[in-house]
Computed example of a mutant assay.
Amino acid sequence: MTISIFAKILLLGLLEPTIDLNLYFTGMKYTTATFASTMCNILPAFAFLMAWALRLEKVNLRKLHSQAKILGTLVTVGGAMLMTLIKGAKLDLPWTKGYDNHGSTSALNTHDDTIKGAFMIGVGCLCWSSFIILQAITLKKYPAELSLTALICLVGSIEGSIFALIMERGNPSAWFIHFDSSLLAAVYSGVICSGVAYYLQGVTMKSKGPVFVTAFNPLSMVIVTILGSFVLSEIVYLGRVIGALAIAIGLYLVLWGKSKDQSPLTSTNDKVAATASEMDTINESFETSNEECVAIDVTKLRPNDESV
């Protein structure tokens, strides 16, 4: 642990657990849950541009695999937007027939509230993208994913508590804990969405990079749509199905581009390592043979040399 690494951990705890979550929840209050989840799908685009600018992602516009990564990112974001903005025809599935779903609606918001909420969610996504990029940079100097996750959660809890004390001063009721769904949501969010998620994305980005991690973010909308259809009997629309297919195609393009992007470098390193290993083996054998030859010559000379 150095001062530089500790400063990065403080900034990591400030970006995601504190600033991003507060802006996201406040922006959702001003808009709707659907609008907030739609805005979060700009994360892969933000992360790709930031990683490109910081040279964490290799992009050569003349190479086909680099073009596939760019196109895959755009298709993934476009598919996620399509899922939420365009409904299309209603699909009458056997397990959703007779179910009148009006969706999750919130109180009507004014135009100014919508713009304010969209701005908050956009800034939150920028902080989230910065968090992922900074985590990838920190892991190069501090390659301990589990310890880094624990430190981020600890620092984020302290910084978030200080921020809440300032914003909720004179309102002690905001700190009351009720044994209901709100407590379950807080525990699940802290353990799974923060602790487990930070660790898994840290392990993945060490070998695949931050862009690879963020490319899977829109896939959550596909999973929510499928689970909502079976568990909550929510109606599925054609636009969501087409958007899900677009997300799958975009993810495949990104994965294909990443595999082609890393394979030449990996194969070259493997060849260099194999050649070096072979040279070491040859040198060791040569040195062993020389020692044996010298030993044999000395034993042959000793009986005939009285001075020896």
Rank of each mutant, 00 (worst) to 15 (best):
I9S: 00
L10Q: 10
L12W: 06
I19A: 04
D20P: 00
D20F: 10
L23P: 01
L23W: 01
F25N: 11
F25S: 09
F25H: 06
T26R: 09
G27S: 12
G27V: 09
T31E: 03
T32L: 10
A33D: 07
A33E: 08
A36N: 08
T38E: 04
F48W: 12
L54K: 06
R55Q: 12
N60A: 15
N60W: 15
K63F: 12
L64R: 14
Q67N: 14
A68W: 09
K69M: 07
L71K: 10
T73Q: 08
L74H: 10
T76S: 13
G79V: 07
M81Y: 10
L82G: 13
L82H: 01
L82A: 03
A89G: 09
L91T: 13
L91A: 12
D92V: 15
D92Y: 11
W95A: 07
W95I: 07
Y99Q: 02
Y99L: 02
Y99V: 14
N101G: 12
G103V: 07
S106T: 15
N109E: 09
D113K: 05
A118D: 08
A118W: 02
M120W: 04
M120K: 09
I121R: 05
I121L: 08
G124Y: 00
L126D: 00
W128Q: 02
F131N: 06
I132V: 00
L134H: 03
I137F: 02
K140Y: 00
E145H: 08
L146M: 11
L146R: 07
L148S: 09
L151A: 08
L154R: 06
G156F: 05
G160I: 11
A164L: 07
R169C: 09
G170S: 09
G170I: 10
N171W: 03
P172E: 02
P172H: 05
A174S: 06
A174D: 00
F176I: 14
D180I: 15
L183S: 14
L184N: 11
V187N: 10
G190C: 06
C193M: 12
A197R: 01
A197F: 08
Q201H: 06
G202R: 03
G202H: 06
V203L: 10
V203R: 08
T214V: 11
V222I: 14
V222H: 05
I223K: 00
V224S: 09
T225A: 12
I226G: 04
S229D: 04
S229P: 04
F230M: 02
I235V: 15
L238E: 10
R240V: 01
R240A: 08
G243M: 01
A246F: 11
I249C: 15
I249W: 14
Y252L: 11
Y252R: 04
L255W: 11
V272M: 04
A273Y: 06
A273H: 01
S277V: 00
S277M: 00
S277Q: 00
N283K: 07
S285W: 05
E287R: 04
A295M: 09
D305W: 14
